[in-house]
């Protein structure tokens, strides 16, 4: 369980991690600047297991993998959004940041609400509002990558099998 940090539509990767910080690939350094240009207080106040809750097209723009790495490094338990931009979606799956497509949860959630996500059971809940929803399931193929723990392990499994 964690608190919700709510934002709007089209949260782009330039505000998730501005280009001026792309001279490093270190997750801890990137985490210090997560969402800095959108919410300067986020990085210092976010706690492990908190949730970013956003509108449509989350993660649009640049292909920088630093974006999901920064959020994961900051301890974000999952990003719950109405929809995700496609490169961010792939990058999150590949790097192990949990992403949840659940417009209904976004609709009822305010910043500070307690959120709980149980992907095994397929339930996303706003505990504060006492409402639960079913997130959009991931396709089986993508679940396979998630279950491997990301793309690196998935590739290792495939190349070793071949």
């Amino acid at each position: 369980m964690g608190r919700a940090w709510c934002y709007g539509d089209s949260v782009d990767t330039d505000v998730i991690i501005p280009a001026r910080y792309l001279t490093t690939t270190d997750p801890a350094e990137l985490a210090e600047h997560a969402l800095e240009d959108l919410d300067a207080g986020f990085a210092s106040a976010v706690q492990a297991g908190d949730f970013v809750v956003a509108g449509s097209n989350f993660g649009c723009g640049s292909s920088r993998e630093h974006a999901p790495v920064a959020l994961k490094g900051a301890g974000v338990g999952a990003v719950v959004a109405r929809s995700f931009a496609r490169i961010f979606f792939r990058n999150a799956i590949n790097t192990g940041l949990v992403i949840v497509t659940c417009p209904e949860l976004v609709d009822v959630t305010d910043s500070g609400d307690e959120i709980e996500v149980d992907l095994a059971k397929g339930v996303a809940s706003n505990v504060t509002k006492n409402q639960s929803f079913q997130p959009e399931p991931l396709p089986d193929f993508i679940l396979e990558i998630v279950e491997c723990g990301g793309l690196v392990e998935w590739v290792k499994r495939r190349t070793n099998a071949a």
Partner: peptide
């Protein structure tokens, strides 16, 4: 199309 670094590594 564009991808991130891990996809490119694969």
């Amino acid at each position: 199309t564009g991808v991130g670094s891990t996809d490119l590594a694969a």
